[in-house]
Nucleic acid binder design. Sequence first.
RNA 1: GCCGUGUUGGUCAACCGGUUAAGACGCCUCCCUUUCACGGAGGAAUAACGGGUUCGAUUCCCGUACAUGGUACCA
Length: 509
Amino acid sequence: MDKKVRVRFAPSPTGGLHLGGVRTVLYNYLFAKQHKGDFIVRIEDTDQTRFVEGAEQYIFDCLKWCGLQPDESTINGGDFGPYRQSERKPLYHQYAEQLINDGFAYYAFDTPEELEKMRADFKTPENPSPQYDGSVRMKMKNSITLSPDEVKKLLADDTRYVIRIKMPANETISFTDMIHGEVSFESNVVDDKVLLKADGMPTYHLAVVVDDYLMKISHAFRGEEWLSSAPVHILLWKYLFGLDNMPQWAHLPLIMGPNGKLSKRDGAKYGFPVFAMNWKDPKTNELTEGFKEKGFLPEAFINLLAVLGWNDGTEQEIFSLEEMIEKFSIDKVHKAGAKFDFEKAKWFNHEWIKKLPVTHYKQTVKEILESKELDIGSDEYFEKVLTQVKERCTLLTDFYEQSSFFFTKPASLDIDSVKPKWNDAKNLFFTELIRNYQLFIGWNAASLENNFKEIAAANQLKPGELMAPFRIMLVGGKFGPGVFHIAELIGKQETIERIEKALVAFSAN
RNA sequence: GCCGUGUUGGUCAACCGGUUAAGACGCCUCCCUUUCACGGAGGAAUAACGGGUUCGAUUCCCGUACAUGGUACCA
């Protein structure tokens, strides 16, 4: 018997890949790697009314950015393909027919209008949304209420029909969830779900069971929003393939927004991204900013997602993918949903920027700076600058304001901070400083600072009063690394030019 | 409405019958730094409510409240 661990992620190409989705993939991925199992991606593209062009490729791009790629073989071919539900259409029909033959499902010929009428007719204040269940089943047009001949005729006439599961009466359906433990439902309160739609496509309920069986899935991870429909899936397993072959279920807690459910729709209103990467809906042309473009490192992104609902029981919070694979444990996953906190998310990014060598993300930063029309100079110089300012950057995009003055003269000087205390003595000091620096040999931060202080002492000025103006001359404002380190990096000529230029501005009235 | 799931500071959370109830983010104070950060030291802030069970409940059980998910020919 095949005991190999095999998990699958099943995205629906209806839009961007949001936080909860990425975390589900992450947990799938960690579990698979941990058990040296397979990680399969199956595409749920059977809802043609919602299908969005390009969404499938987008999902793979996101997974690639996060470093959570499935094996090549499980996308293109492999042992269990095809992986798009639309390409597996004939399979589902066969199993649906089998259920009918065994008396576990039936044809339903009710039109959408008739269903609507049923819901309106049976609607009461106590039951605002009547279901197609055991109590109304006998009042509808289906292969249970109709005579075999009538059914045969309707089928022969190509009448549109769906196949629905026939929920048994008075049964308790229970199963063990890896996160929630024993969960049970009364069959009387679950409705006769549609298994096969009128267009011949399966619903999620049928597809997930058939695919999990055929793909030999051993563990199924999905969001908690699926817990309510678990009884349908349990029954399908029982009727079709046997409960012994059923995968183990894990229903992951939901990720919530500041006030309630984190919705894909209005990501903009939160003030932080809800998608892994920029997503432009081709139908509405609406662009939703992603974590990648916001300036997040993939390492930080998956890290913060992993610990939103899981921890290893220690105080560790920063985990690399490798560490997560090693330490992840499904029984330490929380039962309750967690609110997403963007401040903490930024903290994770900050930590990863400090932790990783600049070579790891310099290409990304280079692209950000070049998009702002900065000439970043030599590779060696660029790396020195990044190393100098990295601890000041929370997002990758912060590198622009934290380092632009290394590549170009400050666009504006914070003159207001200097002017009130500016005087001839200071002017003289800097003039002398220029003369000294012009002849300077051994251009490095330490000797530059010594020289600066010596001249200050000779002029009976306090270095403290001169540092602030000097900084503003070089960077334009009161921020950035140590001034002498900046001077060392931008070089003699540039330093002198900036002092000269600023002197003119400071002395002007 | 009905069904499911959940409930430790503002947020993420540890402790799964006996603790001064960890830690992190954020916030505040101080130190370091003649800038901004980094770093360091402190501080404020928590077990939804009511019943049980128990020598003892944050921890187990039952109610209530609240939150969240489902209740579609969507996933």
